[in-house]
Design a protein around this nucleic acid. Sequence first.
DNA 1: GTCTATATTAAGATAGAC
DNA 2: GTCTATCTTAATATAGAC
Lengths: 210, 210
Amino acid sequence: MSAPRARTRIQAKNSQAILDAALDIFSQYGFRGATLDQIAERAGLSKPNLLYYFPSKEAIYVALLAGLMDTWLAPLRALHHDGDPVEEILGYLRRKLEMSRLYPRESRLFANEILQGAPQILDQIEGDLKALVDDKAALIRLWIAEGRLAPVDPYHLVFSIWATTQHYADFDIQVHRVLGQEGDAPFAEAERFLTHLYRSALTPNPLTAR
Amino acid sequence: MSAPRARTRIQAKNSQAILDAALDIFSQYGFRGATLDQIAERAGLSKPNLLYYFPSKEAIYVALLAGLMDTWLAPLRALHHDGDPVEEILGYLRRKLEMSRLYPRESRLFANEILQGAPQILDQIEGDLKALVDDKAALIRLWIAEGRLAPVDPYHLVFSIWATTQHYADFDIQVHRVLGQEGDAPFAEAERFLTHLYRSALTPNPLTAR
DNA sequence: GTCTATATTAAGATAGAC
DNA sequence: GTCTATCTTAATATAGAC
């Protein structure tokens, strides 16, 4: 996500234009399906000029992925022990949904990378990502043990939040066509539905749930 | 999904081998990222021989997609008015999850096609798929009006079922690495979690819900 | 920093022998 | 039906002038 060695203003500008164009293309076609021609054209540069800023196609792709995981996990990192557990998780849900709304290309880039076998980020999945999920799963189990959260599998809870929120970025074409809506309209409805879904399932005592 | 003009036994066998190999490759890399070399090698045929059975790369891809939509929508088609609404939807959920378990490649093929802008299946999404979802959404609204289902947005309910179930096929690498599990182990847990999730949210009267 | 020209390899597809 | 050889185009990448 960060442009390399952007010493001068023109370097920063062009590197950024390349990364922005590359995000468009890689997120749609994946690493192998994308071409430098497409990226160069989208960036408004010639192909050799593009390769003046990055040594190779893979270097552009790696640069995009470099910052992605941290950004992507920020909403989960912000899940804290303080506050009401149900509201904490609903807050996480909203932050993740907001990521899909604001950064759909990053979501699709991630989806494409996973679909292709995660060749570039498998280490981070087994490392940082797993460690973070393990950590938050322990917190969720604590909340459950305290009786402040309904007893659910914390890992599958997280998976389901990933799935439902990223769906609105990754499958946006399908969502828009089925609903007959355009733009961000689905997100407001999605937030209402998902809030109900998780509040119902996570509120500990059904007899006092509303 | 069906092999074209399989008159003789050897034609049927080779066409099937090609489609099976193509499903492996296309589902991982998408249409553009896949190569005929890969498919031919996986199928155990030479590249020209492969093109004896199918006229082009696109023809193989289209053949794979041809039957996919029907298969993919079968679980939703089987959602009927009879029986308890909550259990009907949970049944749909289980069928869809079973599709992810048994046909993960088909799920990823679909995901790749959507990510790339659905060039081949946009018509079916706006046609058959939208019509079916509209139809089932009406049924769900009827159940809600009858007070037999909690008031939820039927479209986003369907989206969330798609998202949560397909996640276990499309992101299986991530699921397996985070859980430290292999094979079908995650599916049993996922079914338990998702059943709780949707039963909680869909059961109409919270005061009698368990 | 940017361009034209080009080297090199990969990929889709075809020709024609067997 | 299957093979080797090959055509053609596209794609990554580099050379070298400006």
